[in-house]
Design a binder for these strands. Structure first.
Lengths: 208, 208
DNA sequence: TAGATTGTTAATCGATTAACAATC
DNA sequence: TAGATTGTTAATCGATTAACAATC
């Protein structure tokens, strides 16, 4: 909060956080910036700089205490509290994501699914509550849902996003190629587009 | 090729390409850099700069011809040829992606699926050919598959990536939180991690 | 102690933004 | 013609890389 962290650094710290989580599970307790850099494909300078934003102290000469570092990241980035999330658009992709088991252990709870098609809502097999799309603002607000995944056809992306924002959502992962235009309430949006990724990959391969 | 295009510019040009595609479908024939900027949430300077990398000419005073611009991007980034792709890991997410209809119209053909589990291969419902994972290098090479999506458990990501690279793959979209380490043959890899995106969103929301 | 590794300052690099002359 | 909008150069901004003193 006080020291502003650059966006790319935030992204890397998130990546680092998940990496530390895995290391911990594998039984490690300490790690050096150069080891991290090697595993994450970054420079060790970069890692130390990023960790530096946490305004915090590793042990000079012998690296970082994994648990301690995790706690620092967690506190600084606000990971110390479970968050509710929802999925809008319950087609193949949406229901696949909704049923991801990994969310829970990472502090996210998928508490609702939405779709505009009644048939979809009636036939879907899941333990998670599902609602018609027009209830988005209401449910999001009532259940205090903070994050949303949009997996609807691109033509519906903007209106869905607006309904979510109306309900007070804090962030959106948009799986649609449509670029959502900001409303009055500005919230972070992450765009993921598999075909777009293919385009980028094939462009990079072609240019190399 | 001759004028090196910065990576962020490549990403934006891909985004622009898809946007132009949509515009064309909606019946538009020309557009200005400021209109593009507005729709894509970027600065108009930025757009003109990026288009400038194509070493190419819009019409001063009246914007860009959409079809012409598309052709230029297409040629410069190598989109003028259909490419084959495959999916490794046929769980819920993998099979959802494999059956995306949108690939075709964007110049990508999913020609194979792989999984290490024989039961999965036997029970999966799809028109696309599926193979056991150990055949990856062989099939990728034989069918000249250029792009791959990895949707396996993170513990298998590295070995799958290596098999793909062995077969001569040109690029990978990695849906695993595991960061794939580069092999001798360096290829572009795009990492997508839904939980990671949640982390980033919640961090950004928290810090704002 | 000596070796290792952090934290931080300074230098470099690259991308974005601004501005404006050229021109349709 | 006048208005609009490009293409490009220059200025700014920010992030990454390098280097090294501090210290466990």
């Amino acid at each position: 909060m006080q020291t502003k962290i650059p966006k790319p650094a935030v992204n890397r710290l998130c990546m680092l956080y998940r990496f530390l989580h895995r290391l911990e599970n594998e039984g490690f307790t300490t790690i050096s910036s150069s080891k991290i850099a090697e595993q994450l494909g970054l420079g060790s300078h970069n890692i130390r700089k990023d960790i530096g934003y946490l305004g915090e102290i590793g042990i000079t000469g012998s690296g970082y205490d994994i648990a301690k570092l995790k706690t620092h990241i967690s506190q600084k980035l606000g990971f110390d509290r479970a968050k509710k999330a929802c999925v809008v658009g319950l087609g193949r992709l949406g229901s696949a994501i909704m049923n991801f088991e990994k969310f829970e252990i990472n502090g996210y709870m998928i508490v609702a699914g939405f779709d505009s098609n009644i048939n979809v809502l009636e036939t879907i097999k899941t333990n998670i509550d599902v609602y018609p799309a027009y209830l988005i603002p209401d449910i999001v607000q009532r259940l205090e849902i903070e994050l949303a995944v949009i997996t609807v056809p691109e033509s519906a992306a903007q209106s869905v996003a607006e309904k979510l924002i109306e309900g007070g959502i804090k962030g959106i992962v948009n799986f649609t190629p449509f670029v959502i235009k900001p409303t009055r309430k500005k919230i972070p949006i992450r765009n993921i587009d598999v075909i777009g990724e293919f385009d980028i990959l094939s462009a990079l391969a072609y240019l190399s």
